[in-house]
Each structure stands twice: as structure tokens, then as C-alpha cells.
Design a protein around this nucleic acid. Structure first.
Lengths: 340, 340
DNA sequence: TTGTAAGCGTTATCAC
DNA sequence: GTGATAACGCTTACAA
């Protein structure tokens, strides 16, 4: 049983294909209400659904976007995806989901597949796997792109490119201010891998904040983690060996902070009495653990919404945009006055 | 600058469109190697990419599948998605990602959108949002479906429908056996919402296992949770009020188990010395917390792989299949000999 | 207000 | 071996 087509509807309604097409397109202006009704009836009785494929062939639009992320296992992305999806659904767009797995080759394969499938645009949130080919190829295919948390200066001029930058500065400054107000002066940082631009940005914000509060940034211990629980656990060992021992730590993300927290418990270091811990992201879990995590919150759901909205605006206007998303501190139970 | 077409390639290579189409389709059999080369050259210099949309219009295949899940925030799905995606990528399929948010209306909207976009098949993993319309409409559009963890008897006979059932029995039996061998006799269960079929299945497996080990299932305390951390925390309070107090708990999933664990710590109940806890799922976090969680492991990555593979086999053969995925116990540190 | 016909970029069926 | 030509299901001038 082949799929019903517009011709079937036309036959049943006793009109021409174009008339059917018109009611489908909502061109209700120049049309007798009665004809319209007849067509609608026919559509209903036949259970007809228009072929998006055929429509796309002529309209050059697929009502489809690609979403590239690095790692579905990273809780950071969950809320982001939700934000993207809510906006997409509201505008009847579908999402091609692409998990790059931090693998540039796979990232590229996905990107090509998206180009071939003629998506209307791409949300690029896979921070680790950036290479300039992305921008060149996107420009070449005139494919609108939204980049999240990338510092791009060398974009081809003709490209349709919007950017959202994440501003860690206010949140991290608040965090250091909070710790300082609790009497902490020996504050360590567990960063992400230095190969990641976003990790470097966070670290720099930490150092700047230290300076700003009159602490010696050059002396501040910085340990390189992996943005995961395991890295946080390891980092705690390193921190305990530092003399004099830090009384507070700022982690590059919440998973790292949780690793610190749990390893501290293992070693009978009590948090926050002996060690204050501040995370970054405010993942769902952060408020559910004991003690609940003080953390620099990134509005991830909003980030996802904004990204998708930006793409839609680009599609409509043909213009490019820039947005900034700010962070702020959420104080919970993992920070307390310095024991020193 | 309009998109390059097969006609452009034909012109540059000095051949006809059909010839180009032949090399694109890999029909290398009846063709001079030299012509083939020339076409390939032209494709390269033009940077030509075939239009999947046009191709789909004639082939009736989109190399695209829909993936419906209930909640991206549930860690259960992460590995599943990874499994699905790995297989999909390997076969050059793309995935339309659909988060139903436990909302039947949204679930339906997504499903319609998938039909309209002419996906080749749908993976339905949104356990909560089942209604029979799904099956009817899928059958009506001859849309191949893979159902995960659904008991469906009333499927329309003509439908292309494969099923994967999750078998909690072996893992849960092992769990109870393990607890019994440690001397536990007062074992409680924190279930999921009774409205979910999968929660009822798990509870039944628990009761059966209790019986089988000579414990009084009718007396076994069962507390209804919400499959989340908060529910676990609340459940712990309920458990502590039971007299005589249970010495072990089987949670319906790992998030619940974590809630139990953390709330126990809050109330100075030490795990596993005073209370043994067993989870279910084996999410990544389970092995990372302290104490690491003993849990009934569901091979979620495999589940995802199998689901996608099943769909591909259906697509090829036109036949339907049934698979079962088994669970098993992973013993870590949250279980110990009964204090009683 | 409605119908006719020409595409959109492919593949498939024929001839040559 | 290769090249016309007709679909595929839809939109959109242009005619009527």
C-alpha cells in the first residue's frame, strides 16, 4: 500500500493538486471556504500526511537542525539539550543528534552527514573537537552555524556564524569573594585539561579573581584534572600534599568537585569543616549530594534555548549574532569558615 | 551560489547524468574505468555532494531513524544512546532525537513529526508514555518499530514490530541470594511508581526472589519511590521507622539507591555496616561514589546496540524479532554481613 | 478563485 | 557501456 499523495487528495476532493497544495500551505486568502473544507475533509478521510522530503526538495528547507555535542554522559549537556529541544519542538524543527565522543574524525563524519542531509543549520557544542575545517566547510555550503563557547577570530567572512560565549568571570569572582569572606587565603584550583580552551578560560578567571582579592595568584596551587570524578579524587591526594595545606578548592566542574568530596570522605577529611569545596556547572546532582555543593551555576537550560533561538533568528534574518551567558554563585553546604 | 547538482558534474565530466548517477551508486560493473575516473575527478573539483533529499524522494529511504526516550536527564539513557548511535554511525544512519518528557501529547507530536519526515524506523524507549495509538499509527504508515521493555499483546497483526524485553529476574535473584548469604533476612524494596509497568516488573521479581529464598514475601516492606534521588532520601526515613528495622534494601534503580545512601549518611546510619544497599542499573556514578554501590547491572550500551541492530535487520529482511536482555549482580562495597 | 505545467535533484528503465 | 526520459511528491508561476 503506497503512501497517499497530494494527487489522491485532489482526486477525492475533486480539485487540482495546486488547490490542495494551497490549503496545505495555509494560503487561505484567495480561496472559497467551501473548497477548502472539501480538501480538508479529503485529507482527513485519507489520513494524508504531506511528504516533507518532496517539500524539502523544492523549498530547500528541511525543518531540521544538527546538534553536535562531545559527550552525552556529561551531565552538563542534559539541560542544554532540553533547552534546545523545547524551542525546536515549539517551532516544529527536528534535531539530528550527534555525539562526537571527543573524536575529531567522528565529529567530521557527523558534520558531513549533516551537510548531506541538508539540515537548515547546526548547533556546535562540541568544544573539544574544533578544527578550522568546520568553519570553512560550513561557509562553503552556506550552512548557518551557532558556536557555543568558542573563541573564533579566523572565521571566513562570508560565513553565517553566530556565537554564544560563556562568561565564567562573574561566578568565579563571586566564588573567590565568598571564600575570602569566610577567611580562606590558601585556595587551590583543580582545572580541566589545559588542551581545552574552556578549561584555560576558567583557570584564568580563577587567577584573576585571586589577584583581585589581594591573594598571590602566582603561588596559587593549580592541579590539572580531567573534568570527571576520577580526576577529582586524584586531585585531592595532590592537594593534601601541599604545605601549607589549602583550606579551599575551586573545581573546574561539578564532577571534579564530587570526586574531591567523596575522596575527602574516604580520607576522613570533613567537608566543609576542614576543606571547603566549590564546583562549577550546578548539575542536578550538585544539590542532591551531602553536603550539597556550593557551585558556580551556568544556566544550561537557557543556554540551550538561546542557542536554538539564535539559529532560528539567523535562518529568518540571514544575519549573525553574538550572545553572552553569565554565571553566578550558588551557596550551599560545601563551604564554611576557614579552619586556619 | 546554488548547490552543485549531478548535472554540473555531468557537464564537467562530459558525460550524461545517468553515468554520474551510476558511479555514485557504485555500479562499477558495466563501466569503463576511464569514464569512472573522469566523473570522480569532476566530483572532486566541484566539491559535489549528492542531495540526500532528492535521493530519498525516489528511493523512499531516508537513512534516518527516530529515537524516542522519556528523559534525557535519566542516566539510564546515556549509555543506551551511545550504543544506538555507534551502530547508527557505522551504518551511516542519522538519528532524530526525541525527548518526550513523560508527556504523552509531546510523545505523539514527536511521533507525527517522525512520520512526516519519513524516517525508516523508530526506536521507542519512552516506557511511560505508551498508548495504543502509537502501534496503530505505526502500522498504518507501515513504519518499523522497535519497542524496548514493553509488554504488548494487542499489536495490529500487519505491523512491523520488534521487541526487546528486559529480564530483571536473574540479577534480582542474585541480589537476594547475595544478601541472604550475608545473613540478611529483613530485606526491604524501594520500588518505582506503580503506574510504570517496568516498576511493577522489578517489584514482582523482588517478591519472587524473596519467596524462592524462603523469606516471607508478603511481609516484605515495599516503599514506593520516584526513581530519583529525592525519592530514595524519603524512603530511607520510612525504612527507619519499620520495626524490626530492615538490614538491607533493594532499590528499583541506582538514583534511588544513592538517595538512600546519602540520607543514611545524614542520619549517621553507616553503610554497609548498619544497612546494606543494592541498586539497579549500574550507572556510571554507581562505581564512583563512596561506598561504591553493589547493584544489579543492566547492559545498557548493549541494549542500545541491539535495539539499533534489530531495526536495521528489520529494515533489511522485513521480518520481526524478539530479544531479551539479561541482568546480573555486580558486588561492590555497599553490602556487608547483616548486623542482626 | 482555480487549474496547468514546469521544475526541484535523484534513480531506474529503457533504448542505442 | 552510455545516454535519453520518465518518474518520485511537492510548490509555484502563469493562465484561465
Amino acid at each position: 500500500m503506497p503512501r497517499k499523495t497530494i494527487a489522491d487528495v485532489a482526486r477525492v476532493a475533486g480539485v487540482s493538486k495546486s488547490t490542495v497544495s494551497r490549503v496545505l500551505g495555509g494560503k487561505t486568502r484567495y480561496m472559497r471556504a467551501e473548497t477548502r473544507e472539501r480538501v480538508l475533509q479529503a485529507i482527513n478521510t485519507l489520513g494524508y500526511r504531506p511528504s516533507v522530503v518532496a517539500r524539502s526538495l523544492v523549498s530547500k528547507r528541511t525543518q531540521t537542525v544538527g546538534l553536535l555535542i562531545s559527550d552525552i554522559g556529561n551531565p552538563f549537556y542534559h539541560e542544554v539539550i532540553r533547552g534546545v529541544e523545547d524551542v525546536a519542538v515549539a517551532h516544529d524543527y527536528s534535531i539530528f543528534f550527534c555525539n562526537t565522543n571527543y573524536d575529531p574524525a567522528r565529529s567530521r563524519q557527523h558534520f558531513h552527514s549533516l551537510v548531506d542531509k541538508q539540515v537548515d543549520g547546526v548547533l556546535f557544542m562540541a568544544s573539544g573537537d574544533y578544527s578550522s575545517w568546520t568553519l570553512d566547510e560550513a561557509a562553503q555550503h552556506a550552512l548557518p552555524l551557532v558556536l557555543v563557547d568558542w573563541n573564533v577570530e579566523d572565521a571566513p567572512p562570508q560565513s553565517l556564524l553566530s556565537k554564544i560565549t560563556l562568561n565564567f568571570v562573574p561566578g568565579i569572582h563571586e566564588a573567590i569573594a565568598h571564600l575570602v569572606s569566610l577567611g580562606h587565603t590558601r585556595i587551590a584550583h583543580v582545572s580541566g585539561p589545559h588542551t581545552l580552551a574552556t578549561a584555560r578560560k576558567r583557570k584564568q578567571a580563577f587567577l584573576d579573581a585571586m589577584e583581585k582579592h589581594g591573594l598571590d595568584a602566582a603561588q596559587a596551587p593549580v592541579i590539572e584534572g580531567d573534568l570527571r570524578v576520577a580526576g577529582g579524587r586524584q586531585a585531592l591526594g595532590a592537594i593534601l600534599e601541599i604545605a601549607p595545606r589549602p583550606t579551599a578548592v575551586l573545581a573546574a566542574n561539578d564532577l571534579t568537585a564530587l570526586g574531591l568530596l567523596w575522596e575527602a570522605r574516604n580520607r576522613d577529611i570533613s567537608v566543609p569543616e576542614q576543606l571547603s569545596i566549590v564546583g562549577l556547572d550546578d548539575i542536578t546532582l550538585a544539590s542532591q549530594v551531602t553536603p550539597a555543593l556550593t557551585t558556580v551555576s551556568l544556566p544550561r537550560y537557557d543556554l540551550g534555548k538561546i542557542a536554538m533561538q539564535l539559529l532560528l533568528e539567523m535562518l529568518q534574518s540571514g544575519e549573525c549574532f553574538t550572545r553572552r551567558v553569565d554565571t553566578r554563585l550558588v551557596i550551599r553546604q560545601s563551604t564554611a569558615p576557614s579552619p586556619a
